[in-house]
Design a protein around this nucleic acid. Structure first.
Lengths: 143, 143
DNA sequence: CCGGATCCTAGTCGATACTG
DNA sequence: CAGTATCGACTAGGATCCGG
């Protein structure tokens, strides 16, 4: 009942079992975990949105800001810098007057779109379940 | 050069274009964005790890803590509660003495494993690229 | 127009101590 | 064993001003 038989498991689960065992073998040093860094970045509130916006087409700084109305300049600049540092987007400066800077996804950035779309699709499909579960939980426990 | 032709695009990108246009049509209210809530949760530093641990098999509270050595009781309890609230895990209390509580993924939680594995796989494959880009960026800009 | 630097607030997380 | 309560440190993030 507590064990896990490897046969007849969904492939995703099997993959995770393998991954986890590999990590555990290496003492599972969390700072060395490749997933943490990636997911932390994706979860940092703006990165995903910026990637989605740039997936449409290259954008200038203020164009990104118009596309995401509730982002501050500070966070936009920081998010763009981090994404550039990770090689996900490229920054092209046109020394016009006034200057303009165009951001676009690199090939690496494009390659993120596939898993990202999977996640978004999952979120869309399962949103009713999640919201239902939340409502039920809140209703029962509030007593 | 700035436009985006719908033909001959990767499917992932096309999906995103569609999604984004739908969102924009509704004024893109960020608080109504289903993805934000999901990704925020996944990015909150522990959720993903806990899901991965529970994907191996059901765990008791302290077993999860042993599997993730650097999580505090406080954060573990909170993460488990949030996941339960979202219907991703179920909480089974055995009124033994001393009490024991077992957590396991629900069907909804299991369904997250597929997109999650995609993301992890992507992160593993692309980690050299990301780390290389980081090193290059830091080397050039430090001047 | 683009974005860096500064200041400050508000939420987040960890350590510790305590309860059922 | 399985949590909760309280506190303090840390930090993400918004507002604003400034420079290129």
């Amino acid at each position: 009942m507590t064990g896990l038989r490897r046969d007849n498991l969904p492939t995703a689960q099997m993959r995770l079992v393998d991954l986890f065992e590999n990590w555990s073998a290496g003492e599972f040093d969390p700072s060395n975990c490749p997933v943490r860094g990636i997911l932390d970045r994706l979860g940092d509130k703006w990165t995903t949105l910026v990637v989605i916006v740039l997936a449409q087409r290259p954008h200038r700084f203020s164009a990104v800001q118009r596309a995401i109305p509730d982002i501050s300049k500070r966070m936009l600049a920081q998010t763009l810098r981090d994404l550039e540092r990770d090689g996900m987007i490229s920054r092209q400066v046109y020394p016009t007057k006034p200057p303009s800077v165009e951001y676009r996804l690199t090939e690496l950035g494009q390659s993120l779109l596939d898993p990202l779309v999977n996640l978004i699709t999952w979120a869309e499909q399962r949103r009713p379940n999640i919201e239902g579960a939340r409502a039920a939980y809140d209703a029962s426990d509030r007593a």
